[in-house]
Amino acid sequence: MSDDLTTLRLRVNGETRAVVFPTHHTLLEVLREELALTGTKHGCELGECGACAVLVDGRPVLSCLALAAEMEGREIETVEGLQIGNELHPLQATFADLNAAQCGYCTPGILMTAKALLAENPRPSGDEIREALAGNLCRCTGYHKIVEAVDWAAARMRGEEGTPPAEVFYGSPVPDAPRV
């Protein structure tokens, strides 16, 4: 068993932190265990679920499959860096308001992936949202509230007013049908 350690400066959420860790530890493990940034989750450990997604130089990557030792000089963003001061990022606000985060475990990975999408495409279609998030599994929501929350956040980030239609919150109006 190799006892190699790596020492480096990690840039996380715009801050520089010096860390020492066993070289074989992943970015996920270093974020959670050395930096106590436990907002980043793990669901499968093998790159199959997206729960551990963080941004590296603005792109979503799976932190369970990235060696922290390769992260020198890269800009890492986690869910903890998403809010602006004490204000929620529009994605965070719409996810909270639409119940797009139920158990909340897949949420950090999805929020970060959605952030990268909106940085690249401020007006994504539903299909584009689904495509961008296709590496993130969720077992609670059935995905629709997530797509609606990203869509609404994108609108808010474009400076548009308004909320999603009533059926997103209340369900569709029950159709009138004479009892047979």
Binding site: M1, S2, D3, D4, T6, P22, T23, H24, H25, T26, E29, H42, E45, L46, L67, A69, E70
Partner: peptide, 12 residues
């Protein structure tokens, strides 16, 4: 959590 085994990592 399933982790990597230890190894020597070279970055030429």
């Amino acid at each position: 959590m399933l982790r990597l085994p230890a190894f020597r990592f070279l970055q030429p």
